[in-house]
Design a protein around this nucleic acid. Structure first.
Lengths: 219, 219
DNA sequence: ATAATTTTTTAAGCTCACTTAACTTTTAAT
DNA sequence: ATTAAAAGTTAAGTGAGCTTAAAAAATTAT
């Protein structure tokens, strides 16, 4: 599969995960920095290849074949991120950019070797689950997005589900990191903003951020 | 630069190295498994980009810019080969295939990290010199191709300058490996074939093979 | 030196992954 | 419910990197 195809399929999967919401060509166009026209075109052509289900003006979804492809690309991406971070000491800021390229040019054979070398990790350095070689998503059942968490409770950060450099810059500047303790002080209005405290510091986060910070109740 | 461009430039460089001879579109077409027409087309377009010097019906050569690009791609290729072999335990058979893909999608930043991790090696697992970050070829002055070596003398194998899987299979099956001792028994006829002995075994090699086995006089 | 063969080049055409521009459908606002 | 705005779609066109087929030049064989 081509780079464009893999990225399109991956974007559908990720968007479905991050927001529960419908995915339409426009959303993907923004994610992939192409025009709506190109996105619609791609949707039609991938539907013809039986990778996605697509009817004009309706939301897109992955077929089982598309899902498998998404898992395979995401597996390679996350294995590379883990590898680049653990072995080559690249920072959390740097790994995404490199993995974004390498994921498309890594054979199944090589990804197996990397997986083996790393000792079959379950998650990457952002806490994102690494799909298995047979295409299973390996979902973390007990973690929830901060946006859906309860005000007043204390949680542990288990996942930073983003690929936005600005978000990671913000995290680095504000002690938001995996395994850190975080208190959700309160949600404002219709959950559009939330106040948290971390390492004694109080912060107000917008919805975009609270949707990608995944937490678990302290056990 | 695109994958096609990088491969074209790399092929010119490698062909110049392996045979001292002229490189014309047909040679590159065979190496890259494209038609002569496509090769000629590519030559014209890369000349327009000032990467190669090209006049109709004449041999091609690299400009300084083209040379730099070749060094950069080759550097990444050989760093990956070294890394895949040393760190991920891929065999000499497997590393070329993977490096051939990864070389085109590796930032200068990442290749630096790999180089550092490996301790700035001078050669890859085939004995091929790894160009420096500033684009120097790092040539091994004292090694020569077996085809130009003296009959009756004993040498040490220092480089297997090939990317042909069949050649490496042959090497593996006949104890031809880096640092092995090899005796050049004699050249037949117009140097088209040569007899060697290695680990007590006598073999006759064709010119293609003797041109890619590089040796040094035992010191 | 001439002819036969091989190599190189040109021309026309294809697919992929885009673009812009015009148009249609859906969604949101009043 | 109607209308304005936003989103989605279609159509036409582009450039890269190929292909096949035909023509031109260079090489080789006699």
């Amino acid at each position: 599969m081509s780079v464009s195809t893999e990225n399109f399929i991956k974007a559908i999967y990720l968007q479905n995960q991050r927001e529960g919401t419908d995915v339409k060509p426009g959303t993907l166009a923004k994610m992939l920095r192409i025009t709506n026209a190109a996105s619609t075109d791609m949707a039609r052509s991938l539907a013809a290849k039986n990778l996605i289900v697509y009817t004009k003006y309706k939301p897109l979804s992955l077929t089982p074949e598309g899902q498998l492809l998404a898992m395979n690309v995401l597996r390679k991406h996350r294995l590379w991120e883990t590898f680049l971070h653990q072995t080559l000491q690249l920072s959390l800021h740097e790994i995404h950019r490199e993995a974004e390229m390498l994921e498309h040019f890594t054979s199944d054979f090589l990804s197996e070797k990397i997986d083996c070398f790393l000792g079959y990790p379950a998650t990457d350095p952002h806490g994102d689950p690494i799909p298995t070689a047979d295409g299973q998503a390996r979902n973390d059942a007990q973690s929830i997005a901060l946006s859906t968490a309860d005000a007043g409770k204390i949680y542990t950060i288990v996942r930073l589900f983003s690929s936005d450099a600005d978000f990671f810059d913000f995290c680095a500047a504000n002690h938001i990191a995996l395994n850190s303790e975080i208190k959700l002080e309160r949600h404002f209005e219709h959950q559009k903003m939330s106040e948290i405290s971390i390492k004694g510091q109080h912060l107000v986060l917008n919805e975009t951020f609270t949707k990608v910070i995944y937490v678990q109740t302290k056990s």
